[in-house]
């Protein structure tokens, strides 16, 4: 350990101790021993990939009915659900959808906070008022904000789909599982505080798709990828135009160069 820096080592130990003390199994512990997630053939892969609207709408339903019970998504607003390149809800649908939530606003002229129905410009309401409340309700573990989760993990959506779907298995014989923790073969360290979130037919899809665990895990992972990278389609579309322009421009430069250098020896 002498090769490491003394203050860093002690800081790491301190942080690890804090993490363990809180009963939280974060990425700070034993990353790298998890199984690699199988690669998924997402509709948004590749240079021409786009999101599948129906998949994102189903994914939103899973998030709303399952994940949102514990997880916030503070960077995403209801209005984003109608943005181009997103789940493709209509403005009217978003308005109606937002109104089903109760949002705390204020203070009003009397200095009081008050409740009102959600509006499209509101961010998704968080299930807990603060981090301490979230921890208290979840056995000390903090359910992460999911806005960026698909970009904040190696292998992003592949990892999420594997973790939420096939990841929850029986621990191998002799595996010492910590109290209040659950075995997941794709989670770094294999011990995750989140109980198995998805069970068959947990949601009833409006489009009649069969709600298997794999289907829901797939849909919600795609939704989380959109939430993390809402400009993905705009980016790839602009990219194509830029690439075509640059290929032509570079071709012209090469032709001009050849012509100008013709007489140089």
């Amino acid at each position: 350990m002498r090769k490491d820096f003394a203050p860093m080592t002690s800081l790491k130990l301190l942080a690890a101790a804090v993490v363990v003390a809180l009963g939280l199994n974060g990425p700070a512990l034993a990353a790298g021993d998890a199984d690699p997630a199988p690669a998924v053939n997402w509709s948004f892969n590749g240079p021409f990939g786009t999101f599948d609207r129906a998949e994102l709408q189903r994914g939103y339903q899973v998030y709303k009915e399952v994940c949102a019970a514990c997880h916030a998504m503070k960077f995403v607003a209801f209005r984003n659900l109608a943005d181009p390149g997103g789940p493709g809800f209509s403005a009217a649908e978003v308005k109606a959808l937002a109104a089903t939530f109760e949002v705390t606003d204020g203070p009003n002229d009397d200095g009081e906070m008050f409740k009102r129905p959600g509006l499209p410009q509101d961010k998704f309401p968080s299930p807990f008022p603060n981090q301490k409340a979230a921890r208290a309700a979840n056995g000390g573990a903090y359910p992460l904000d999911l806005s960026l989760i698909a970009k904040a993990r190696p292998q992003g959506p592949d990892y999420l789909a594997a973790l939420l779907g096939a990841g929850y298995t029986q621990p191998p014989a002799g595996f010492a599982l910590g109290e209040g923790l659950h075995y997941n073969k794709y989670f770094p360290g294999h011990q995750i505080a989140m109980p198995k979130p998805l069970n068959p037919d947990q949601v009833t899809y409006a489009d009649g798709t069969k709600a298997t665990v794999e289907q829901m895990a797939h849909d919600v992972s795609a939704f989380l990828m959109w939430a993390a990278e809402p400009k993905l389609e705009e980016r790839k579309r602009l990219g194509l135009k830029v690439m075509i322009f640059l290929v032509v421009l570079t071709g012209l430069f090469m032709a001009a160069k050849k012509r100008i250098w013709k007489d140089v020896h």
Binding site: L11, K12, V18, V19, P27, A31, L148, P154, P188
Partner: peptide, 16 residues
């Protein structure tokens, strides 16, 4: 990927 996680002085990334 870790830079899409907000800074947290109490949690050290596995490999900095």
């Amino acid at each position: 990927p870790d830079n899409y996680i907000p800074a947290n002085p109490l949690v050290t990334p596995a490999h900095i």
